[in-house]
Design a protein around this nucleic acid. Sequence first.
DNA 1: TGAATTTAGTTGACTTGGAAAGCAAATTCA
DNA 2: TGAATTTGCTTTCCAAGTCAACTAAATTCA
Lengths: 141, 141
Amino acid sequence: MSEQTSSFETHISYAVAAAHRSVNQRMTAQLKKHGIQIEAWRVMECLDAGERLTMGALASKALINPPTLSKLVDRMVSDGLVHRQISQSDQREINLLLTHLGRIRMLDIRKDVEEQDGALNGLLETEDGALLLKLLSKITV
Amino acid sequence: MSEQTSSFETHISYAVAAAHRSVNQRMTAQLKKHGIQIEAWRVMECLDAGERLTMGALASKALINPPTLSKLVDRMVSDGLVHRQISQSDQREINLLLTHLGRIRMLDIRKDVEEQDGALNGLLETEDGALLLKLLSKITV
DNA sequence: TGAATTTAGTTGACTTGGAAAGCAAATTCA
DNA sequence: TGAATTTGCTTTCCAAGTCAACTAAATTCA
């Protein structure tokens, strides 16, 4: 099987964790001036992109566990960024919506995130950004 | 600049977060039967690989913030996996060492991790594993 | 030398995250 | 129909993480 004992830094899991940590640190620093965390940004982008998302759908798109999302949304509601609306087709479901303020803030934050993502892409050769996305998607179940 | 508004899922930061979440979930499930968390495994591998690591060096290699590492090490010490040794060259530094039990446990866990990493590599074409590592290292500061 | 600064690591107060239990609406099927 | 099950989300309780402050050793330099 494996020809030699490779150092553990060459494990895919390690490389992904290292990249994630690095990217998250840049991102957190960038979002700090907006007083918001990465997860909240993802929630806002998801809400802007998809329409009438339920908590469950949102949790999976925004990469957040349901209980954690529930609490994050509590905070975002009290910050006036989003509001909950009970679905009329199924009373158990919640449709989450961006408030006007939420949308404004999101557009503002997006500029910085785009810039940051551009810088990240700048670290790669031209087509490598797309290639990286493709490879990452393959290991993402 | 950007020709069109791309969906936020194509951001490198999102793809990395998604991959990380997915890999971590597999890994956590795998390590559950050993009653250990991913970070503790990384600590053990770091200690096995490098010699006489200080807390600071370890924190950076194992991708853990110093205060978090300090507490994790407390737990690992009381589980008998590692022990602290004050460096004689600098009394402020701690050299962390695997205990005998720690080494045994590590070797045992390593088998499962290798297997899991193999499965991950199996999701990619032959040379893509190495390619992914290379691309990830470029965005890791 | 010795006061001031820097560096290594830990601690403490506080926040956040997660697993499992809980609640209520919807669905199944006897 | 109505009891049993499933589904969607939240709450609770506890474990873990973070920021900032702290201790102590080493280093700087006046």
